[in-house]
Design a binder for these strands. Sequence first.
DNA 1: GTTAGCACTCCCAGCACGCGAGTGCTATCG
DNA 2: CGATAGCACTCGCGTGCTGGGAGTGCTAAC
Lengths: 354, 354
Amino acid sequence: MQRLELSADLDSRAREVLREVIIQHISTGEPISSRSLAKCGRFQLSSASLRNVMADLEDLGYLVQPHTSAGRIPTDRGYRFFIEHLMTSRALTRREREVIDDEVRHANEIDDVLQHASSLLSKLSDQVGIVFMPTLLQFTVRSMDFVQIAESKIMCILVGMNGVVVNKIIGTRQPFSRDELEKIGRYISVEFSGMTLDAIRRQLLRMTEEERALHDQMLQKTIALGIEAVNDVAPVEHELYVEGASSILMKPDFADAAALRRTMLALQEKEKLIEILESCLDEEGLQILIGSETDFTQVHNFSLVARRYGSAQSPLGMVGIIGPMRMEYARIAPLVDYLSRVLSRKIEEGELQQ
Amino acid sequence: MQRLELSADLDSRAREVLREVIIQHISTGEPISSRSLAKCGRFQLSSASLRNVMADLEDLGYLVQPHTSAGRIPTDRGYRFFIEHLMTSRALTRREREVIDDEVRHANEIDDVLQHASSLLSKLSDQVGIVFMPTLLQFTVRSMDFVQIAESKIMCILVGMNGVVVNKIIGTRQPFSRDELEKIGRYISVEFSGMTLDAIRRQLLRMTEEERALHDQMLQKTIALGIEAVNDVAPVEHELYVEGASSILMKPDFADAAALRRTMLALQEKEKLIEILESCLDEEGLQILIGSETDFTQVHNFSLVARRYGSAQSPLGMVGIIGPMRMEYARIAPLVDYLSRVLSRKIEEGELQQ
DNA sequence: GTTAGCACTCCCAGCACGCGAGTGCTATCG
DNA sequence: CGATAGCACTCGCGTGCTGGGAGTGCTAAC
């Protein structure tokens, strides 16, 4: 029992066996038998000896057999050990890096970037790519512009300190001249630069009260427009891009309809996903959640590989991959890692532009 | 044989039987037996008599039995006849209309509207909602505005004659003053108003040649910026919103994994969908394609209910629903019809605003 | 024209059976 | 004492069989 905790002290043979079992299982999806290990040539041992080792590994909770008289498959714990001690990440090929660089460099608007990122991940990994951007409430404004686009429609363009651009169309009753709009934009940009949307709104609301007495029409207009602008943008909800759900369809892991169904539904259920991703937002490095660690209620044999992106001081969100537990971590971990770095750089560059 | 064509002259009993079979089959999904028809009480006939009628309907190609000793299910032809002659559309409830009105009224940007429309359809029908907007190449410009949002980034806001707003961020090498940007916007808006993006681009390219000799720097800047703007927007691809694929997951029709898989993949394959929708773009009224009529290569037991939206002169795209052949046409037809009308009105309103 | 009756067809769920894969254990070997 | 060979045991899975049930088509009688 106590030995269970000392996960690091498997003897080297056991480690090799565990490693081989996981590698084989990742590539075939089948339970791995002692015989297939013996045949693979990596060990100078008979299947009987390997059986002993495997039995030990099972006792320690790294492997299980789906039923007696079946080979063994890794447990969550097994994968965890593999990732922490046994795995040798395969570096990205130059080609892969190029694809990522290109794709990210290309897009201009933040939405585009994220959208591309998720579909990229999905394509390169053949899994489900996800990109998550939490609410913009902490979005700090650098500048605000207003442009009349129709008689009673004004487009408001918000540029954030981090280079993120958001725009919103607002309807108005009163008319604004081009000049007025420019003045208003300038005024707001100067007065409120560096504040969060939330703060701006509160401040504007406070001003409404105070200034009601004053009959400065211009100021009133400014306030009205400003409130409209932030009011409508603030509730920009968590954005969550989930791309490539179809790639899951082809995995042999989902032979039966029920599993497939459950999985697709789980992926649709964005609240849960958001919750999980949000809980990872504090950690800095690459994060790998395996199986039950993700507490996906419906689908428990899933893993999440994700990493934070955005500047170190103000992380923007998470990018990552969701896939069956038996995924190629060695390839996927560097992939996610690299993409998140490129993304962060892209965003920081935007920040440097001012 | 010849009789096959005279589909309208089924005697009234046969029509009633066909009708009942289809209705029952739509609601249960099972093959319908003569006995269950007899039991339903609509006919004062024994199952034996009904069997005769059904055998006739089978000869005429309206019904088939999946295998001997099974009940009968409608064929494409059967559904077609049902829709054209037997169906009585159920009007939308006030509630449903309200939901639609609200949702459409709310959204402001065209993308939003369409996005909402598709998810609305999906929710209200419990099928897959689709909304399709073809390329913007024929998008005719009303006005164009440029706003500096960072040192070397300019946002271009295109407003179309039909009220559609598109914006695009473009990078620039040379600097522009606020004044210049405004002038350029005004100039382009005046000179090119009413032209398609494609025409504008061609014209600008022509001007490049002509004006190269002239050293009007302002004009050169204008041309450069204008080309950037339309160049990047023009290839805005067909947009296709497909919402609610998950609702399909729950349908009992997809008990086995293979069918489910095929279906999901087919829905993912947007090119085919676009092709189909595009081919419907000429027709004015509500269109219903049943089963093989959709020539969905992979999945042939699917129906499409769709209608054009946008002003009569310049249709914008298609909205509709995709679902299994056995769907509640009586409810879905009015739904699609109504939504497309609301959408069209919304867009025309936009048009009236200038 | 309608209906009752009957033979026939076919699907499907359940069951037994045998095979093959894989294990655990034990006795043996170096 | 660790490695191995051998053997009995356990399951899962595919196969073939069977009986029941649902539904039809046909025919003869009303």
